Simulated assay, not measured.
Amino acid sequence: MDQWHLRHLRVREAHRETQGEGVTVAVVDTGVEPHPDLRGNLLPGIDLTKGGGRDGRRDSTGHGTGMAGLIAAHGRSADTGALGIAPKAKILPVRCLDAAPNGNVDCLADAIEYSIHAGVDVISISAGGGASAHLLRALGTARSSDVVVVAAAGNRPINSDVPYPAASHDVIAVGGIDHRGSIAEISTSGSSIDIVAPAVDIYSTSIRSRYRRGTGTSGAAAIVAGAAALVRAKYPYLPADEVAHRLTATAIDKGPPGRDDQYGYGVIDLVAALTADVPPRGFGSVPADAPDTAGPTTAAADGPPADEGRAATVRGLVTLGVLVAAGGAWALVARHRRRSDDPPPRITR
C-alpha cells in the first residue's frame, strides 16, 4: 500500500475517533465496480446513463471505483490493499457518466435527487461543467434535506473558473495540494474554493480488482467527502451546514491569512475536525485551547492536466483528472457559506 496522503492526514489517529460507522456516501460518477477492498461497503445503487438499467455497480473507466476507494476502502490486511478515509462507511453508487468525457447536467441533477431520496448523508461528485435550473434545484433540495454535497473545483488548463456543481454555494468546493503542501499546479482557483486536500499521485482501487494512481481535484473531493462522513459519524446530530463549517474552521491555514482563492480556508485536518471545540457558525473562530492542528499537512506533487483539449459546456459535464495507472481520475471540489450579498455564481460556458 502506497498512500502517502494517509500519513499526511494522520488517518490512523483520526480512526481512533471514528471510521464512518452508520454513514452512507453517494458516489456520483462512472459507477463503482465491486472490489475486494470495498467488500461489505458497496450497496446496490442505480445506473442513470442512457440504456443503463443496472444497479450502478459497473464501471468502464475505473474512475468511480477509485473515488469510492478513497472514501471507504478497508484494504485486505494491515499492509495490503487500499485504505479509505472512512472505511466503515457505506457507498451508494450512482452511475451518471460513462467512458465518454462528457455527461448530461440534468442526469447529474437526477443523480443528486436519487441520492437524497435514498437517504444518504454525503454526496461526492468528481465532475464539473455548466449549470442548469434542474441542477440548481437539486442542490437546493440537498441543502434543505440536510445532505452534505462535496464536489471538485476543477483542473487547469481545462477549467479557468470553478465549474458547477462546485461553484454553487450549496456545495463544499475542494481544490488540490501537492506533496509539499503547496497548491497543486492542476488545481483551479476562485472565490468558490472552500478547502483543499491531496490531489496528486493518489493511490486507490480500480476495476478488475486492480489499483490506480490518479492526479486531479477528483481525488481531493473524494477525500473531503470521506472526511465529511467521519464528522457525520462522530457528530450524528450536526446539521449539514455545520459539518461543512467544522471542516473549514479546523483546516490548516495556508497562503495569505484567512480564506483565499487558492487554498480556501486551508488544508483539511481530519483529527482537528473530529476533536476540536468548534463554536457554531457566527460565534467566532476555533478557540485557542482547541487541539493542536499544526501537524503534517496533506499535499500532492504537481501533475499533468486532465482531459486535455476538452471543455465543459452549459449542457455537459467533464471529468476532472488524469489516469496514471488503471482507471481514471477527476477533479472534485465543493463550496459552502457564500454570503447572502455575494453575486450569483457564474455559469461556465
Rank of each mutant, 00 (worst) to 15 (best):
A72D: 07
R12F: 01
A312V: 05
L270W: 02
C107N: 00
A118F: 02
R39M: 10
I347M: 07
V27F: 04
L136W: 07
I177P: 04
V23L: 01
S189Y: 05
P280L: 09
T275Y: 07
T65P: 05
V333W: 01
A131K: 06
E185V: 05
A273Y: 04
R137P: 04
T49E: 00
S209A: 08
G66I: 04
A199N: 03
H179Q: 00
L320K: 09
D98R: 08
E308G: 13
G176P: 00
Y164V: 01
V25C: 01
A138D: 08
R39H: 08
G328V: 12
T297L: 14
P257K: 14
P304I: 05
R338S: 06
V224R: 10
S192N: 09
P236F: 07
K254C: 10
D260T: 12
P344K: 03
L332E: 01
T275R: 15
Q262L: 08
R180T: 13
V171L: 11
P257Q: 15
G51M: 05
T49N: 02
T348K: 10
V324F: 00
G75S: 08
D302E: 15
A326C: 14
P257A: 15
G20L: 03
G216A: 13
G284V: 00
V150N: 06
H245C: 14
I252F: 06
T24D: 00
I195E: 06
R339I: 08
V324G: 03
S187A: 05
G316W: 01
P163G: 08
L6I: 10
S192Y: 10
N41T: 04
R349M: 14
G56Y: 01
G31R: 03
I202Y: 02
I347P: 03
G327Y: 06
E308L: 14
D178W: 00
S144T: 13
A89R: 06
A329S: 11
G81K: 09
L238G: 04
